[in-house]
Design a protein around this nucleic acid. Structure first.
Lengths: 221, 221
DNA sequence: TAGATTGTTAATCGATTAACAATC
DNA sequence: TAGATTGTTAATCGATTAACAATC
């Protein structure tokens, strides 16, 4: 039916290709071969060619890839040619930081609303966007055709909120809460688990430390 | 020499096990089998057993795993039994949000300093920690034996900063800038690429949309 | 045309799952 | 003891890398 499933590993690498191509574009690089790119990105040229060929033949034998063209093709693959209306739920520090991150708009993500339960935050203006009460969520989502909700609320509030959002027509959840949300299959969740990221760093540090130690390998004394 | 290399896939899953076990612990669950846990986490029981056995036999035949014990073992594996001194470089919105995220302290990560180049931010106090000038970085790192630096600075500043930090003895970098940092191999980098995360969400949304469309498969008209 | 480099098939490697003997 | 469930080996599956014919 539709082309064979793209593996998750490939999808995870796409934004990175996009970033490197953007950097090349800024430096006015016109063409690049999979070999050159592979050296910059520290992956194999083979992997780059395999990955890209999941989506089509974007290169030319004997030439390589045109940077601008490939950049724009990947941008389409990533859906960055579309516009998304997004809201941020939870106007705490992280929510505010995300609201202030104007870079998202360049990529087509427009912050239409910010919500919180805290009366002290409601009414506050962040980059010109007023913080609203979460009571208004349902109506706001429907009236402003919101596609994506960013969740920066306390963990305990997340599950109920996620199912409400799904019911109200949200199609994507950018989840910053440390939980795995249960949502209907027409809703997509992308997680940012900061605490887990920090733990991975901690693991790697601890691991290196062990290798350095003269290593006391004996069990009990 | 040392036990066989742990794969990256396993390490990435460890913090998630840790989170689920923490949740079970809060619910006063005493024991759990790989089967039960696998149903909660939506992975195979086999994978759980394989993953854990990379680090040792934490379970007991016929019984399963003691939640508290396993939790504490994983915590050690992740290096969460150690204390880390951390600084945040870049006191913008995201830096401030991270500084305010007190939860890190519970896991042994102590924010000792916050730094910025902006004179308007210097002197400001965040959770009782004064924002300092980046001029003081080298001295501060050495005097306070800082282990980890969190990078929430503009992309352009990141590469030079990373190599300075390595020189000054930082062992881990939690990198929020959209770049892959070049560091000596005794320094560990853990990336949080928010823009890339959002692009993955965007990809998944775009992909679903395509499947819904009646799919106009013809090339050009 | 000759040289370069892709697109793609085949080979290898690694990770996941299944199966089951060991054992609590 | 019988039942349950681990730890671990073997089988399968998928992803990465290598190789090379196609072709610009």
């Amino acid at each position: 039916m539709n082309k064979k499933e793209i593996s998750k590993a490939v999808i995870n690498r796409l934004p990175r290709y996009y970033r490197y191509l953007g950097d090349l574009l800024e430096k006015d690089v016109v063409r690049i071969s999979s070999k050159e790119l592979s050296e910059k990105m520290k992956v194999t040229a083979s992997q780059i060619r395999q990955d890209l060929n999941n989506f089509g033949g974007f290169g030319q034998q004997g030439y390589g890839y045109n940077v601008e063209y490939l950049y724009s093709e990947i941008s389409k693959i990533l859906g960055l040619d579309k516009k998304y209306n997004i809201i941020i739920i939870g106007a705490g520090n992280l929510g505010q930081a995300l609201a202030n991150y104007s870079d998202f708009e360049r990529r087509g993500f427009f912050v239409k609303g910010i919500f919180d339960v805290n009366p002290r935050l409601i009414g506050l203006s962040i980059r010109g966007i007023e913080v609203r009460s979460t009571d208004e969520l349902e109506q706001f989502i429907k009236e402003n055709s919101i596609d994506i909700a960013t969740l920066t609320v306390p963990k305990t509030k997340a599950p109920a909120l996620a199912s409400d959002l799904a019911r109200w027509g949200i199609k994507g959840i950018w989840n910053f809460t440390p939980t795995d949300l249960q949502v209907p299959k027409d809703v997509t969740v992308e997680n940012v688990h900061l605490a887990e990221s920090l733990m991975k760093l901690s693991y790697k540090l601890a691991e290196k430390n062990e290798l350095d130690q003269p290593e006391n390998n004996s069990e009990e004394e």
